[in-house]
Simulated assay, not measured.
Amino acid sequence: MSGEIVLLAHGGGGRMTDELIRNVILSAFGNFTLNKLTDAAEIQIGQNSISFTTDGFVVKPLFFNGGDIGKLAICGTINDLAVSGAKPIALSMSLIIEEGLEIEILRQLLNSAAKTAKEENVEVVCGDTKVVEAGAADKLFINTSGIGLKLPKANIGFERIQPGDKIIISGTIGDHGMTIMSQREGMKFDTDIQSDCGSVAHICANVIEVCGEDIKFMRDPTRGGLAAALNEIVRQTSSAIEIDEEYIPVNPSTKAAAEMLGFDILDIANEGKVVIIVSSDKAEKCLSVCRQSKNGKNAAIIGQVVKSDEPIVELITKIKSRRIVQMPYGRELPRIC
Rank of each mutant, 00 (worst) to 15 (best):
V274Y: 02
D18C: 02
E98G: 02
A258L: 10
H176S: 10
D18W: 11
I248L: 05
I161W: 03
L140C: 06
R235A: 05
A41G: 08
V6C: 14
L101T: 09
A134L: 10
A113G: 06
I89F: 15
D68R: 07
K130G: 02
L151D: 03
S49R: 08
T54M: 11
F57Y: 14
V234S: 04
L109V: 07
L72G: 02
V200D: 09
N206P: 13
V122M: 02
V24M: 11
I45N: 13
F217W: 01
I43L: 09
K130V: 14
Q326P: 06
A40H: 02
I208K: 00
L266E: 05
L110S: 00
S84A: 13
G30V: 07
I336F: 11
E314H: 06
M16G: 00
G148S: 05
A9V: 02
I248F: 14
D39T: 03
I301L: 10
D267S: 04
R335Q: 14
K318H: 01
F63W: 07
L8E: 14
I173F: 09
D39P: 10
A73M: 05
K115R: 09
E185P: 11
T317W: 04
S288Y: 08
L140N: 07
I233V: 14
I302Q: 04
K166G: 04
I43G: 00
S239Q: 12
D80C: 14
I50C: 07
G12I: 01
M178H: 00
A228P: 03
V234C: 10
Q326E: 15
G157Y: 10
T17W: 00
L26S: 00
K216L: 04
I243S: 05
G135M: 07
V83P: 05
P311T: 05
I215G: 02
P252K: 15
E4Q: 09
I316N: 06
T172H: 09
G70M: 02
S199V: 09
K318M: 15
A240I: 01
K36N: 13
I147M: 14
I89E: 06
L110F: 11
R223H: 14
R219A: 12
G76L: 14
V289W: 04
Y329L: 10
I268R: 03
F263P: 03
L34I: 11
K71T: 11
G272A: 14
